[in-house]
């Protein structure tokens, strides 16, 4: 009796220790990134880092605006391409597909989440970049925001699809029946009752997808071109901005960290801190939205 009690207790403590370890990992990563980034933040200043439009480490110019623009634009592109696809997929899985079919489609979508991102990069290089190059605009190399957005759209698909499908399935069956019983079509029921009722869950799903998009690194390096420029339209058509090359915040760190020293290295760590805070904000806002829903 007594030994059993002791075993029970110690298993409890052991498991708690494991849980604390993962929290400790988050804390340590945050702490060391911040420690390494602090010299740059104090010397250059957060303001100049965030608003400077020139990144030329050799000349001690550390403006992150080109990379911020690159990250933001590629994420917007990925959302434009990926969100409708993902929500369509979620509606299909939750509302339309018979069980046997969703049992095939769902694992296939989930498999997308398991593909290493370097493989996405390879696919982007051999398929999407050549495709993007076919758009006949002067200065279009194929490498750039369009190809990167397309790769990213597929990468965030499983996140958004999974969570949205879950949110749609949580909509009470009574709403669905109540709507159909009024003589509405299935499509009307989906667009007028089910999607509005699942809205907060779907918004949270999109935000989490965006968080994932902002953090993606290697696949972006492989297809986005990595030029340190603020993306601009290649001709009079503003949409050609997506044919411009760019560099993401994450890509900037990965490309330069191998040879960076001194303040340059610290500036890259500071970029890491900015990303860390940004993604923490994004995830917690998604969490807050979801919590609001379940209440």
């Amino acid at each position: 009796m007594r030994t059993r009690f002791i075993v029970d207790k110690s298993v409890g403590y052991f498991l708690m220790l494991m849980a604390l370890t993962s929290i400790l990992a988050v804390f340590l990563i945050g702490f060391f990134t911040l420690r390494e980034g602090l010299p740059a933040i104090s010397e250059i200043g957060l303001g100049r880092l965030l608003t400077g439009s020139v990144w030329r480490p050799g000349l001690e110019e550390f403006g992150l605006v080109p990379m911020i623009a690159g990250s933001v634009l590629v994420t917007i592109g990925a959302a434009i391409l990926g969100v409708p696809l993902a929500i369509g997929c979620a509606v299909f899985l939750a509302e339309i597909a018979p069980r046997w079919m969703s049992n095939i489609v769902r694992p296939a979508v989930e498999l997308l989440a398991g593909i290493p991102s370097v493989v996405y990069g390879l696919f982007g290089m051999v398929v999407l970049v050549p495709l993007a190059r076919k758009v006949p605009v002067a200065g279009n190399s194929g490498f750039g925001l369009l190809a990167a957005s397309a790769v990213l759209a597929v990468m965030i698909l499983p996140t958004i699809t999974n969570i949205s499908e879950y949110a749609i399935r949580l909509v009470p069956r009574e709403y669905r029946e109540g709507s159909l019983a009024l003589g509405t079509t299935r499509w009307q029921t989906i667009t007028r009752v089910i999607l509005p009722s699942a809205r907060s869950g779907i918004v949270a799903a999109i935000i989490l997808g965006i968080g994932r998009a902002l953090g993606e690194t290697i696949a972006m390096i492989m297809v986005i071109g990595n030029s340190v420029i603020i993306p601009r339209p290649l001709n009079a058509n503003p949409l050609t901005i997506f044919l411009s090359q760019a560099r993401t915040l994450t890509g900037n760190i990965a490309v330069e960290i191998n040879y960076a020293t001194g303040i340059h290295e610290s500036a890259l760590f500071a970029t890491g801190v900015i990303l860390f805070v940004l993604i923490m904000l994004i995830n917690s806002s998604a969490r807050a939205i979801m919590r609001e829903r379940t209440r």
Binding site: Y175, E177, G178, A181, L182, G183, P196
Partner: peptide, 20 residues
């Protein structure tokens, strides 16, 4: 079936107003 359900309405066991 859509026309039929317009002609034959239904009130359910559990009140189910939409969240509107």
């Amino acid at each position: 079936v859509v026309e039929l359900r317009r002609l034959v309405g239904m009130v359910f066991q559990k009140p189910n107003p939409f969240p509107k």
